[in-house]
């Protein structure tokens, strides 16, 4: 079996990631109580993306895989989800202009 499938993540790293995720949950709640105007949403999504990235890279072992297709699959998912959201908004966002 290839080496990348067998990468054993050290315990201290799992512990660090777990604690970071819990702390960031607290942070995101705290930030939501501040009035940052439109930045509330941006910060909330940024923190969520940070947490999601940690889960994907460490817990799902994407950081350690040499398999290009795994990364391609993730990029494809983000890209096509982005297409769905942005091109839909191209309609909903500009419908009132006329």
């Amino acid at each position: 079996m290839s080496e990348n499938q067998h990468h054993v993540v050290p315990l201290w790293l799992y512990a660090t990631i777990g604690i970071t995720l819990l702390v960031m949950t607290g942070v995101t709640y705290f930030v939501a109580t501040l009035d940052l105007g439109p930045f509330n949403t941006i910060v909330a999504l940024a923190i969520a993306s940070f947490k999601a990235t940690l889960v994907v890279l460490i817990f799902m072992h994407v950081k350690y895989t040499s398999e290009k297709m795994t990364k391609a699959a993730i990029i494809a998912a983000i890209f096509f989800l982005g297409l769905l959201l942005t091109l839909s908004l191209a309609d909903f966002g500009t419908r009132a202009w006329l």
Binding site: T25, T28, Y29, A32, T33, L34, D35, N40, A44, L45, I47, A48, K51, A52, V55, V56, F59, M60
Partner: peptide
Amino acid sequence: WHFVDVVWIYLFPLLYLISRK
């Protein structure tokens, strides 16, 4: 299971934290 977790990571701020100020 991790994927289900990632979905929730986005659902929490989007549904619970739209505005708490």
